[in-house]
Design a protein around this nucleic acid. Structure first.
Length: 565
DNA sequence: GAGTTTGAAACT
DNA sequence: CAGTTTCAAACTC
C-alpha cells in the first residue's frame, strides 16, 4: 500500500476518523495540557507525571494493569469494568518468550525476559496511523511512546481522532479492546515459565485461526499468550496442545533429560502397579469437538483432531503420524501427578532420619541384649554344633534370632547368599514367599552365615533393614496411590472399552492370596500384574494380625518395585 | 537489514 | 457471514 507512508499528516483521513484537534481530552488523557507535541511525531508526549485521578470512562480498556516502564507515561488508563479473570496480556506482545530461533527484536527499555517489569512494545506502524488494532500500542490502550511508527495519531495531540477511532472500533466490536485471554483462577505465570515450562493458564476467547504456523510460533495469539489452544480456536494443524511433542520439545529443550528420567522412574513404578500408565496420558487439554469435523476436509488429517478431541488417552503417535514425525508413544505414568521431585527429596530425608534413629535404637538394644545374652551364650554355642564361627559369634553378640523375629522364616530361601539375609529378604521377598511354603517353618538355616565380622555387619544389617522397611512402606503408599488412580481409570474405561478389551485389561482380580507365615492377604490385583509381584494395598487385609513390623516386612512382597526403582 | 511469511484486523 | 485486502509483527536469509 504505502498510501500514507512518509506522507505525514497528508494521509487521507478515513471515513471513520474525523480528526479534529480540539482540546477535548479523553478521560484517561490526564493532564497533558502543557505538553507540546508536534504532530506526527513518533514520540509520545513526554509529560509531567500524569495524574492518576482520572475517573471517566476511558475508551480503551485493554492493558491498564500491564506493567509499564517508568518511561511509558502515556496512558495510565484507569481500568474499565472487566470480567474477572482476564489477563492483561497484549496478545501480540506478551513478550514472554521468544521462539528459540527468533532473533532478538529491538527491545524497549525494561523489556526483559526474566519477569521484571517490562516496557510496552514499541510499534512500527506505517499505514494505520496507530489508530487501528493493528497497532499494538493502540490495541493495548496506550499512547505510542518512543515508538518507531510513522504518522502516528495515537498520542495526546490527536486524541480526538483517537477517540473517534476507538469508538468506531467499539461500534464494530464492543469487545475489541477487551483482553482476549481468560485466565484460569490460578495465577502465577512467571514462576513456571522461568523453568521453561509452558504456562497453560487462560484461554483465548476468540481463539486463533492459524493455518501454517502450527500454533507454535508467535504468529499464533494463543502461543504468544503462552496458553494452549482451546476449543475456541479454529486453527489447522495445531500443535499447541498439551501432549504435543512439538510443543514440548519447543518448551522443554534442555529439560527433556530430566523429564525423560522422571518418566522412566514413573514408568518403573507404574509398571509395578499396572499397565494403565501407558496410553493413559491425559489427553490434550483442548477438546475441539466441533473442529474435529471442521477440519475433516482440510489438509489437517482426521487423526490430528481425533487426537485433540479425544479427551482420554491420546498417544502421540496419532498426532505424530499426522505431523509426519516418528511414531512414538508418550508414556505417562499414573503416578506422574503424584510423585513430585520434592517428594523424592522428602523421602530421602525421611530415610536418612530413619537410618539415624535405627542406629541409635539398635545401639541401645544391642547393649541391653549383650547383657542378657552373655550368660546364655555359652549354652547356645554348644547347641549350634555348627562349624561356622561367625554364626557363633553373631549368636553371642546380637542374638540374631530375637532381632530378626518371625520374619526370618521368610529368609529361609536366602540360603547360601552372601548378602545380608534381611536385605535379601527385602530384595527377594516374592521368591522367598514362594519358597517359604516348602521351607521348614522353623528356619533351619540361620541367615547369618555370611557375616564375617559379625557384630558390626549385623548392626548394619539391622539398620539397613529398618531403612528398607521404611522405604518399602513409602513405596507401598505410592503404589496405593497409583492403584487408586488406576481403579478410577479402570472404572472409567469400563464404559469405553470393548467388552473383550475390558475383560482383559481392566477387570481387577481379588485374590485371597496365601502367604507364608500363615498370613493371607486379600489383594486387589489387576490382572496384568504378574502373580509373582502382587501389589499390596492399604485395603489389603491380613487375616492374621501381626505385631511385628518385621514380620509384615517379609510378608509384603512389594519389593520387586524397589528393584525397578 | 531486507525480504518473506503469517494471521489478525479491516473491509467488501 | 464469507471472502478478500490490509496491516504489522514474526520470521528467514
Amino acid at each position: 500500500m504505502g498510501e500514507g507512508e512518509g506522507e505525514g499528516d497528508k494521509l487521507p483521513p478515513k471515513k471513520d476518523e474525523v480528526i479534529t484537534q480540539d482540546s477535548m481530552k479523553s478521560a484517561r488523557q490526564l493532564d497533558f495540557t502543557h505538553v507540546v507535541h508536534p504532530p506526527h511525531s513518533n514520540q509520545a508526549p513526554v509529560t509531567s507525571i500524569p495524574s492518576p485521578a482520572v475517573t471517566a470512562t476511558p475508551p480503551i480498556t485493554t492493558s491498564q494493569a500491564r506493567p509499564v516502564s517508568t518511561t511509558t507515561v502515556a496512558t495510565p488508563i484507569p481500568p474499565p469494568p472487566q470480567p474477572q479473570g482476564l489477563l492483561h496480556v497484549p496478545i501480540r506482545h506478551p513478550e514472554r518468550f521468544e521462539s528459540p530461533n527468533s532473533k532478538p527484536r529491538p527491545v524497549g527499555v525494561g523489556e526483559t525476559r526474566d519477569g521484571t517489569p517490562q516496557k510496552k512494545k514499541q510499534c512500527n506502524c506505517k499505514h494505520s496511523r496507530c489508530l487501528k488494532l493493528y497497532c499494538e500500542c493502540f490495541a493495548s490502550g496506550t499512547y505510542c511512546d518512543g515508538c518507531n511508527c510513522v504518522n502516528c495519531f495515537n498520542n495526546v495531540e490527536f486524541d480526538t481522532a483517537r477517540r473517534e477511532a476507538v469508538q468506531t472500533i467499539l461500534d464494530r466490536n464492543p469487545n475489541a479492546f477487551k483482553p482476549k485471554i481468560a485466565s484460569s483462577p490460578h495465577g502465577g505465570r512467571d514462576s513456571r515459565e522461568e523453568v521453561g515450562e509452558p504456562v497453560m493458564l487462560g484461554k483465548h476467547y476468540k481463539g486463533c485461526h492459524c493455518k501454517k504456523s502450527g500454533c507454535l510460533k508467535k504468529y499464533c495469539e494463543c502461543f504468544q499468550a503462552n496458553i494452549l489452544c482451546s476449543e475456541n480456536c479454529k486453527c489447522l494443524d495445531c500443535k499447541n496442545f498439551e501432549g504435543s511433542e512439538d510443543r514440548q520439545s519447543l518448551f522443554h529443550g534442555e529439560h527433556s533429560h530430566n523429564v525423560a528420567y522422571l518418566q522412566h522412574v514413573n514408568a518403573a513404578i507404574t509398571g509395578a502397579i499396572g499397565s494403565y500408565g501407558f496410553a493413559s496420558a491425559p489427553g490434550p487439554k483442548r477438546k475441539k469437538g466441533q473442529e474435529f469435523f471442521y477440519n475433516q476436509g482440510t489438509k489437517d488429517s482426521p487423526t490430528h483432531r481425533l487426537g485433540q478431541a479425544n479427551t482420554g488417552r491420546t498417544p502421540s503417535s496419532e498426532t505424530d503420524s499426522r505431523a509426519g514425525g516418528p511414531s512414538k508413544v508418550v508414556y505417562r505414568s499414573l503416578l506422574a501427578d503424584i510423585i513430585q521431585p520434592k517428594n523424592v527429596k522428602a523421602l530421602c530425608s525421611v530415610l536418612v532420619a530413619v537410618a539415624g534413629e535405627a542406629a541409635k535404637a539398635l545401639t541401645e538394644k544391642r547393649l541391653a541384649d549383650q547383657k542378657e545374652t552373655s550368660v546364655s551364650s555359652s549354652v547356645q554355642d554348644q547347641g549350634q554344633g555348627n562349624n561356622k564361627g561367625t554364626e557363633i559369634e553373631i549368636a553371642a553378640t546380637g542374638n540374631q534370632a530375637e532381632k530378626s523375629g518371625p520374619e526370618d522364616s521368610s529368609s529361609d530361601g536366602s540360603k547360601g547368599r552372601s548378602l545380608s539375609p534381611d536385605t535379601l529378604a527385602l530384595m527377594c521377598d516374592e521368591r522367598d514367599t514362594m519358597l517359604m511354603v516348602a521351607a521348614s517353618p522353623k528356619g533351619s538355616v540361620e541367615p547369618t552365615s555370611q557375616l564375617p565380622n559379625g557384630g558390626q555387619d549385623q548392626f548394619y544389617a539391622e539398620q539397613e533393614k529398618v531403612v528398607l522397611t521404611k522405604f518399602r512402606d513409602c513405596l507401598n503408599q505410592i503404589i496405593s496411590c497409583g492403584e487408586l488412580k488406576e481403579s478410577n481409570f479402570s472404572s472409567s474405561r469400563m464404559n469405553l472399552d470393548t467388552p473383550a478389551h475390558t475383560a482383559v485389561k481392566v477387570q481387577p482380580v481379588v485374590q485371597q492370596r496365601p502367604v507364608a507365615n500363615g498370613v493371607s492377604q486379600t489383594i486387589k490385583q489387576p490382572s496384568q500384574l504378574t502373580t509373582t509381584t502382587p501389589t499390596p494395598t492399604p485395603t489389603a487385609t491380613t487375616t492374621t494380625p501381626t505385631t511385628s513390623a518385621q514380620t509384615q516386612l517379609h510378608k509384603t512382597p512389594a519389593l520387586s518395585e524397589k528393584k525397578d526403582l
